[in-house]
Nucleic acid binder design. Structure first.
Lengths: 215, 215
DNA sequence: AGCAGATTGGATTAGGTAATCCAATCTGCT
DNA sequence: AGCAGATTGGATTACCTAATCCAATCTGCT
């Protein structure tokens, strides 16, 4: 709505952009660990090593900062998901991706769940415009998965009657729910069960000649 | 640890129990809509129609109130899940349960997600003892699903090589993730995709004679 | 050099929140 | 009736948080 006064629209020096990024990164880290509501602007100020005025120089208010964190986490996740694992266009890639997700949650000590999922659950109903940004992030995420599945169909690894749209949504749902449960249960059992069951479903659509070892 | 001073341990009159319940119900409603951090004790006081001292008479602090809300939501959900739908011990029951879950989220206007899941994501890392309570709630929940699947195996509807433990965890993960995504996307697409894909996986273990219409 | 605008520091304020306290009232029980 | 303990009302406090303000400094550009 209001774009003329919003600090986001102003000129940013190289130095200014660096400071802004430092604030966003510090806020993202704190919000991942303590939630959005559990992260105070003084805490962000100290963690980023800036003064109060700098936060409000680059962001209209705390909600705007939270939106910036959402955008940052979306970028980070999508970059990791696509760069690290390439396109999820084979059973080997799906299995490798599954292992990375599970191992990442273990390495974190079952703390924090999904950076985007936790934020989403906390703020999507309360911060204006945040819900749409989160929805877009999830859509891109499932889209990346869907692209891989579609590629598998195109290459004849999966039958044409497989529904990549439904399967990719199911995969993301299992991932998000699995991470949420991992946080509470301090175990990746539900995460593994969810991801493996979706992969198993996808395997049902494999063309007959592809029968790699089930593990 | 400290049980001698905790207000929970004291004698409760009929009237006292009613007041305590009123506080918990009001807090549960507010926390469902605005989150735990987004719910202030003054707001609970007003919604419950009590005075400040009453809240702290029945609960040691806000964390204790939050724990009571978790216990309350766990009870409510498990009662609904088992009483309303009985044991999930047939494909018809699974389908009916799926429809109820999806319709419930639609009726709520995609607001709030799962009362237990949202709370879990927000507080399981921050409130002492809350994580364990949430984990127990989820374990009971998946246990109820597992019981139904086991019953299907016992009756010969599912083959013996189906793994009820894994499938029930997968189902709960898909449910939680689906509700989280529904909140952001304002759509039950991911929820339906997740639940349907797990049900489809379960169907793969059906004994041959059972082939009801796929929908 | 010198200007305009970006950036920074840090004090300050207004408002809300968790939690406490004490006195008053009610309740169950004998 | 009358007591002990449970319950209630509501003022109060100490603290924290979001946000503002103004003056000082830096930066890119001509």
């Amino acid at each position: 709505m209001v774009t003329s006064v919003a600090p986001d629209a102003q000129q940013l020096t190289t130095k200014g952009r660096a400071t802004r990024d430092r604030i966003v990164r510090a806020a993202a880290d704190l919000m991942f660990r303590h939630g959005a509501a559990g992260t105070s602007t003084p805490a962000v100020r100290d963690a980023a090593g800036v003064s109060s005025s700098q936060i409000y120089h680059y962001f209209a208010d705390k909600d705007a900062l939270t939106r910036a964190v959402i955008a940052h986490q979306t970028e980070t996740i999508l970059a990791n998901q696509t760069a690290l694992l390439g396109r999820l266009d084979s059973f080997e890639a799906l299995k490798a991706w599954r292992d990375v997700v599970v191992q990442a949650e273990r390495d974190l000590g079952y703390v924090g769940g999904c950076p985007l999922g936790s934020l989403s659950s906390e703020v999507s109903d309360h911060i204006p415009d945040a819900r749409q940004a989160l929805a877009d992030g999830f859509t891109q995420w499932s889209g990346a998965i869907r692209g891989g599945l579609q590629h598998m169909i195109d290459r004849g690894v999966l039958r044409a009657d497989a529904d990549p749209e439904r399967l990719s949504l199911a995969m993301l749902a299992a991932l998000q729910g699995g991470l949420l449960l991992a946080q509470a249960q301090r175990s990746t059992a539900a995460l593994e069960a969810g991801l493996d069951t979706i992969v198993e479903s996808i395997r049902c659509y494999a063309t007959e000649d592809v029968t790699d070892d089930p593990q």
